[in-house]
């Protein structure tokens, strides 16, 4: 029997609504479950005490510090590299072979599994450069991992800057560098920052690449050459080795809250960026007519 157009419309629509609601329900189930079990553990002492007995007791102060340091190293290294690459792609190349190679490499880097980054970080930073399992090794590995995100978002932001700004700046006697530095950067900075914030989120969430490069020490790190265990790795260990479900849930809840804050921050920035751009376009369109 062939369905009438009306009933097939109804069926398709319900399936699509159901799929969308299912996704929201699953996400809600995960987040609520973890938060419900984890929030009771979150306390000031949990955040400020060093773990004891492999995490069975005490808090997660040292994993928090480790996470901050590893992420900071990653972002500080990847930002200049990524933004510089994006500037080169958006402002200096004219679509030649070099551009294609750079873009292909960036896109390929984006797809490499984090465990492969971990293997590379282990063989290159830990072993070859002799940095050992350390904050530095982990941070450098993550820097490579977040590089494609920073390149892509920065390039989009820079390309989004209206060409008339550049033209105007040149017509007032600016050089290319002056134009980039004084006009393009300030106009693109929110988009670039948005990409960096997303990369921070990725660094905080990463596990596989860090297990092989940053070590698993629970001591409070004393230098960038010290090994550390980030929150995500700590959570993984607690969960897998069944050390302390309560502390595992607590750590997971903190991770989710952090990611939530990071996403909200990135969204606020991005919305401002878009609405600014919209205003500019409006202003221009209005005058054209």
């Amino acid at each position: 029997m062939k369905l009438s157009a009306k009933s097939s419309e109804k069926i398709a629509k319900s399936i699509i609504w159901a799929a969308a609601m299912l996704v929201v329900a699953v996400l809600a189930a995960i987040v609520i479950y973890i938060l419900a079990k984890g929030l009771p553990t979150l306390s000031w002492s949990f955040l400020t005490e060093i773990p004891e007995g492999g995490g069975a007791a005490g808090g997660i102060a040292s994993p928090i510090v480790g996470t901050v340091l590893v992420t900071a190293v990653a972002v500080l290294i990847a930002t200049p590299l990524g933004v510089g690459t994006a500037v080169y792609l958006a402002e200096y190349t004219k679509g030649g072979a070099i551009t294609k190679i750079i873009r292909f490499s960036a896109e390929s880097l984006a797809g490499i599994p984090s465990i492969v980054y971990g293997l590379f970080g282990f063989i290159f930073f830990v072993m070859y450069l002799g940095l050992g399992w350390s904050i530095l090794s982990g941070g450098l590995t993550l820097a490579i991992m977040i590089l494609p995100t920073i390149i892509r978002t920065s390039e989009e932001a820079i390309r989004g800057v209206p060409g008339s700004y550049r033209e105007t700046s040149f017509s007032l006697g600016a050089t290319k560098w002056q134009t980039i530095y004084k006009v393009v950067f300030p106009a693109a900075i929110q988009g670039i920052t948005n990409g960096i914030i997303l990369s921070v989120g990725r660094s905080v969430a990463e596990t596989a690449a860090l297990v092989l490069t940053a070590g698993s020490s629970l001591r409070m790190p004393t230098s960038l050459f010290a090994p550390t265990r980030t929150m995500a790795v700590h959570f993984y260990t607690l969960a897998m080795e069944d050390i302390s479900p309560a502390n595992a849930f607590g750590t997971a809840a903190l991770l989710i809250i952090l990611i939530f804050i990071i996403n909200v921050g990135a969204n606020i920035l991005l919305n401002r960026f878009i609405s600014n751009k919209g205003k500019k376009k409006e202003a221009k369109g209005g005058k054209r007519n």
Binding site: T168, P186, R288
Partner: peptide, 18 residues
């Protein structure tokens, strides 16, 4: 850059820098 300072230009739509 000197040339463009000697020969200034105004475009068909206003182009205030941000």
């Amino acid at each position: 850059t000197q040339l463009r300072r000697r020969v200034g230009m105004v475009f068909d739509v206003p182009t205030p820098l941000p």
